[in-house]
């Protein structure tokens, strides 16, 4: 029996959660870069959402509400595990197969490099840039989700983009050590 079916009190609410599940997983993965941890964070967040669904007054606010819960679950994990910001926690299981053609291999290397540099960002910057770029959240929405001032959203985003830009300007060899991903 699925978690959603087990806890579900409202079929409509279950459906709404299910529709958002893929996006929540992608966001959690972009924060923690671990497939298994992303699974855990999303499961926990969905469970909390089902338990607290009475708190959601405005259905239009569902996305931000879910991301706030996801963010809290992610930070619970951060508090429990201090090693999460280390680059070797990036999980290469989510990268394409290396046995693919050369062009795919090169492309995979680029994706791997971008992910590694995102993983190296401070968590606060990583959270902001992924909410803005992956989920297309407005700055005000990000401020609400993360419970920070909008000015902080802008400064974190700007610093994150500057850091990524500078790192990706470097020749690949300079950051080759960061490709040592967890087996």
């Amino acid at each position: 029996m699925s978690l959603l079916s087990f806890f579900g009190r409202s079929r409509q609410f279950e459906n709404l959660l299910a529709e958002n599940r893929s996006r929540m997983w992608r966001l959690a993965y972009a924060w923690c870069h671990s497939r298994h941890m992303a699974d855990d964070i999303v499961q926990e967040a969905l469970t909390k959402a089902l338990r607290q669904h009475d708190q959601l007054r405005d259905p239009a606010a569902l996305r931000g509400w879910l991301y706030s819960i996801l963010f809290n679950c992610w930070h619970d994990q951060l508090r429990e595990r201090k090693d999460l910001t280390d680059i070797d926690t990036v999980d290469e299981a989510e990268l394409p197969d290396h046995a693919s053609p050369d062009s795919d291999y090169e492309q995979n290397e680029i994706v791997r490099r971008v992910r590694c540099e995102v993983a190296r960002l401070p968590a606060g910057q990583r959270e902001v840039i992924t909410l803005v770029d992956l989920e297309e959240c407005a700055y005000a929405e990000v401020a609400t989700i993360l419970d920070i001032p909008i000015g902080t959203v802008m400064s974190r985003l700007s610093r994150a983009r500057a850091a990524l830009r500078d790192k990706l300007r470097e020749p690949p060899a300079k950051s080759a050590t960061f490709y040592q991903l967890k087996a």
Binding site: S22, W25, R26, L95, Q107, V111, V114, V118, D133, L134
Partner: peptide, 21 residues
Amino acid sequence: LRGAYPLLPEKSALAGRRFAP
């Protein structure tokens, strides 16, 4: 950055399939 994190349609697809950007 968007290209590095493509959206997977179903979570169940994660277990046995690798995705391509």
